[in-house]
Design a protein around this nucleic acid. Sequence first.
DNA 1: CCTACGATCTGCT
DNA 2: GCAGATCGTAGGG
Length: 197
Amino acid sequence: MKLEKDFYERPDVVQISRDLIGKILCTRMEGRFTSAMITETEAYCGRNDRACHANDELRTARTEVMYGPGGVAYVYLCYGIHHLFNVVTNRKGLADAVLIRAVKPVEGNGIILDRRGRDTITPQISNGPGKLSQALGIQTLHSGTPLRGKLIWIEDRQVHISANQIGSGPRIGIEYAGDHAKRPWRFYLKNSKWVSR
DNA sequence: CCTACGATCTGCT
DNA sequence: GCAGATCGTAGGG
């Protein structure tokens, strides 16, 4: 079943990041359905977190959707090429988000291969934030899209992940954030080939 | 207006 | 292991 508003509007973005491991990210772009299991996430908190785009009340047109209610996509362009997909969480006014860093394809593998320009499904088809966005057809124009609509949503298919199957560590690519860079806010499925690095 | 740079990926060595 | 790609965003003049 689709994750509901209550899931996304909880106040603890770190807990939500853990909870998203094992959930199924689904898209239907131009009638083409694809889905993938989330295997790696990172938490970004809008308060007291220098790694977050919405840190210290920084508020711009790009980050505006993070200040809205949870359950919406925040997608932005990185290095001029890569579309990075985030799940906005918490209630209106509190700009938290979870970056989805890796997934394992479940359905629509032919479409995923086509979008990625490959001919076999291997972990490198979707083991990075830019790769999974391309695999599922997510782009910056989808920033602000509700996660309970017809284009993008997340399902709980009762895949049971026990707490000891989830590893944690520092977030990737945010060395500039000083002490905040050391927080173990990256979560991943242990012993999975479908994670980054 | 102008410039610097980033929550990355790929290909080449 | 490392350089280059490539452009929206943000901040300064």
